[in-house]
């Protein structure tokens, strides 16, 4: 079982969390200006790397907040978790202690 560190609640068992896919996917500001290929790329295509992967997790049984985790997809080793700020401004663990909303 993975031990995932929730940025608010601390380390908890994997069973308390749900997985949300790749982190840092930014919705295009003007979808009408995109080609079908670009829109499909935003909707469906993900990096699926072998190695370090930044991904979204939700602490479903805990504080219910979304946050980011950097996990190695080969070893499953978790390098750390981070809070989510406004799009494109993800900050390292502990840095973004005040929410920016």
């Amino acid at each position: 079982m993975l031990l995932i560190e929730c940025p608010w609640c601390g380390p908890r068992a994997e069973t308390e969390f749900s997985y949300g896919g790749e982190a840092g996917i930014v919705r295009p500001l003007d979808p009408d200006a995109l080609s079908d290929e670009e829109w499909a790329d935003y909707l469906f295509y993900r990096a699926n790397p072998r190695g370090a992967h930044r991904e979204l997790w939700n602490h479903a049984h805990g504080c219910r907040r979304w946050f980011g985790v950097e996990r190695d997809t080969v070893s499953y080793r978790i390098a750390g978790s981070f809070r989510l700020g406004p799009a494109g401004s993800e900050t390292g663990k502990g840095a973004n202690t005040e929410r920016d909303d």
Partner: peptide, 18 residues
């Protein structure tokens, strides 16, 4: 995080703003 206060009521921390 993960604390509560006791008094007339009990106030439990549920999340960073809850």
């Amino acid at each position: 995080a993960n604390t509560y206060s006791s008094g007339t009521h009990r106030v439990y921390w549920l999340g960073p703003d809850e």
